[in-house]
Computed example of a mutant assay.
Amino acid sequence: MKFETLAIHGGNLITDSQKPVIQPITLSTTFGHQEGSLIYTRANNPNRMALEQLLTQMEMGTAAAAFSSGNAAGMTVFQALPLGSHIIAPADMYHGLKKLLVDVFKDKLELTFTDLTDIENLKKCLQPNTKLLWIETPSNPLLKISDIKSLCTVAKENDLITVCDNTFATPVFQNPLKLGADIVMHSSTKYFGGHSDILGGALITKQNNSFWEQIVNIQKTGGAVPSPFDCYLLCRSIKTLAYRMKGHAEHAGVLATFLDQHKQVERVFYPGLTHHPGHEVASSQMSGFGGILSFLVKGGPDDADKVISNLKYFNNATSLGGVESLLERRAAVEGPDTKTPQNLIRVSVGLEHLDDLLEDMESALDKVS
């Protein structure tokens, strides 16, 4: 099946004798004891089975595990590592996961954060106890691009497990498992949900090995799993993922070009721009450049806040991937330890009419110029 067909049909697991076109929600927390019984919904549920089946096919893996949030998915990977393991991760790693590593795992794991857009930095950071390489591309919020294939080659030469956060690109535009990654991670809250009303996370593996078995054990024993209703909603939303992503990417590309030419904008971060330092690598491993961009407003944080306050159709809110356009001054959200420029605005470009978005942004920028 092509991706669009898979997204529509891959998540239906019909057991009802009436053959409903859409899989019903199975709310029961427990199942009668019999051969093959699911037993208890923390361990498994028909709607979670359907979602994990769909995720596996979308990322072209062998198995998937769904979680209650993206951070729960990431935390499960970290928990599955031996005590004292060394992790190499991007310096601009998503703030929520980086905070999780620094605050929760600081006494359990060794951490090195570096710029993974330069493969030599990975080689310099290797230690005898290095177990995991974490890749995030495009990165959040600077849209840096890392060469997945090259990084995974070095990782394999040194017996590292490689996990790639594919949230920004989605499998519509990028397939890290095909580029050498061992596991793909998603915050399914974002583009998979697509409507800013579902919290979830996911891991998809290339191989069903002992490390993956440990991840599944933590998932089922720890119980940080999505509800049947959330699984149902995700399967429903993913049916339109391919078409939503095409719209998000088209709008982001046009808006990035507009901002790149505006006198009140200092710099635009979007891999679809030909002068973006990661454009060539992105073009080689992505079939589209996604719906997220960031830009620096000329001036300081007050000027960026003024732009935000003057907008009508861009909601000042955290998160991304919904049909509505969202933005925020990212440094204000990340807190005092942030390395993000104070005048940077991250934009999740939505599916409103493009003319309305462009007019709105132009008006807001002109008011502070």
Rank of each mutant, 00 (worst) to 15 (best):
E250R: 07
V21D: 12
P82Y: 01
D103K: 15
A64G: 07
A282V: 04
P301S: 08
T117P: 06
F3Q: 03
F3C: 00
L111K: 10
I39F: 09
Q342K: 14
H353R: 12
I308P: 02
G201F: 02
D302C: 01
F192W: 07
H262C: 10
R329L: 14
P171K: 02
F314G: 05
D355N: 12
E4D: 13
I22L: 15
T29A: 11
Y232S: 11
K206P: 01
L83V: 02
D355E: 13
N121M: 13
G96K: 14
N315R: 15
L259E: 00
R42L: 10
G335C: 10
T221A: 06
L259G: 08
E136R: 12
Y94A: 13
Q127R: 15
M361F: 10
T117F: 02
F3K: 08
A65T: 05
S196V: 04
D360P: 09
C152S: 15
Y40E: 13
K99F: 10
A65L: 12
V281P: 01
I8H: 07
A304S: 12
D182R: 03
G70V: 09
D302G: 02
L177P: 01
K124G: 00
L132D: 08
F105S: 01
N158I: 00
T137F: 11
S68W: 02
Q264H: 10
T153Y: 04
T137A: 09
K220A: 06
N121Q: 13
P138Q: 00
G278H: 06
V154M: 04
K239T: 14
E352V: 00
D92H: 15
Q174L: 10
F269E: 03
I87D: 10
P82H: 01
V323M: 11
T117V: 10
E136Q: 15
